[in-house]
């Protein structure tokens, strides 16, 4: 019997494997990949000392009071940030929704004003969420000084971009016929939104917002590292002073907070479903 044809995938596979290996080398060099560094005496000592300080976690009353304040501040930052982001997201998201366009009803492809506005909204949203919240926070700390205000504004801007885009997408993907019928019957955009789109989309919109709130809790912790208040700022200070006990308490608080936010958001979203 004849020998089977050669494997047609053999050459491409060989090529890709070689390419991957060739690329891996500069990756390792660029990232200064030295696992041995983890075991160097100096690093081991620093880490050991720090981790050794973890036990016992700091429980002095005045520190705990500070911790509690920072925790509440973190939660407040997340909540205020999301509230602020809605101010951006709702109008921009609605602007992007084609099912609410009146000019598209008539014959033709719709007014060019509407199209330009929609494109503009899309672009603004892309820039808002394109710059990470931490960079915004770093910039705002320069303007407003250290503290939660910078964090809230940064969250508001980035999450405004994300929520606006997703709101637009959700509204676009819901059944547009009820809204269209209302618009054709001469009702306004707001009425078409409330009676035509929201009944079908509300649950998904709320669910996504809750999910984003959960992300915002994490993000507001992190933003503390650039001086925007909350648990992160406390953690940053403790780390800089290599105070293991405080860091352990903060980390534990932080884990509980994140898991609780996770749980609450999951619970709310299940209730909505």
């Amino acid at each position: 019997m004849s020998t089977p044809v050669r494997d047609p995938a053999a050459l491409p596979r060989l090529g890709w494997t070689l390419l991957a290996l060739v690329l891996l080398w500069p990756l390792l060099r660029l990232t200064d990949f030295r696992p041995a560094a983890l075991f160097e005496a100096g690093n081991l000592q620093a880490m050991g000392h720090f981790l050794g300080g973890f036990l016992p976690p700091e429980t002095a009353p005045e520190f705990l009071a500070m911790l509690a304040r920072a925790t509440v501040e973190t939660l407040a930052m997340a909540t205020a940030g999301i509230a602020l982001s809605m101010l951006l997201a709702v109008p921009l998201g609605l602007l992007m929704t084609r099912s609410l366009s009146i000019s598209r009803l008539g014959p033709g492809r719709g007014g060019w004003v509407g199209q330009i506005l929609r494109g503009l909204a899309r672009g603004v949203l892309a820039v808002l969420r394109g710059v990470p919240e931490l960079v915004w926070a770093l910039l705002f700390v320069r303007v407003f000084g250290l503290g939660a205000a910078a964090g809230v504004l940064a969250l508001g801007i980035t999450y405004g971009g994300m929520l606006g885009k997703v709101y637009g997408e959700i509204l676009e993907s819901t059944d547009a016929r009820p809204a269209r019928i209302l618009l054709e019957a001469g009702s306004g955009r707001l009425a078409a939104l409330c009676y035509g789109l929201l009944p079908n989309a509300a649950q998904e919109l709320v669910s996504y917002t809750v999910y984003r709130w959960e992300c915002a809790v994490r993000a507001s912790v992190v933003m503390g590292f650039v001086g925007a208040g909350g648990l992160g700022q406390l953690m940053d200070q403790s780390m800089k002073m290599l105070n293991g006990g405080e860091a352990a308490s903060i980390l534990a608080t932080f884990l509980v907070l994140v898991l609780a936010a996770d749980g609450l958001s999951g619970f709310l979203r299940r209730r909505l479903a």
Binding site: M1, T3, P4, V5, D7, A9, A10, R13, T17
Partner: peptide, 24 residues
């Protein structure tokens, strides 16, 4: 997984079932 080690063997059994040309 990367390169079939015994394509001849597989092709032989497939040929008995008239499937040799679908080896790859």
């Amino acid at each position: 997984l990367v390169l079939p080690v015994d394509p001849e063997g597989a092709a032989r059994e497939l040929a008995r079932l008239d499937m040799a040309e679908r080896l790859y």
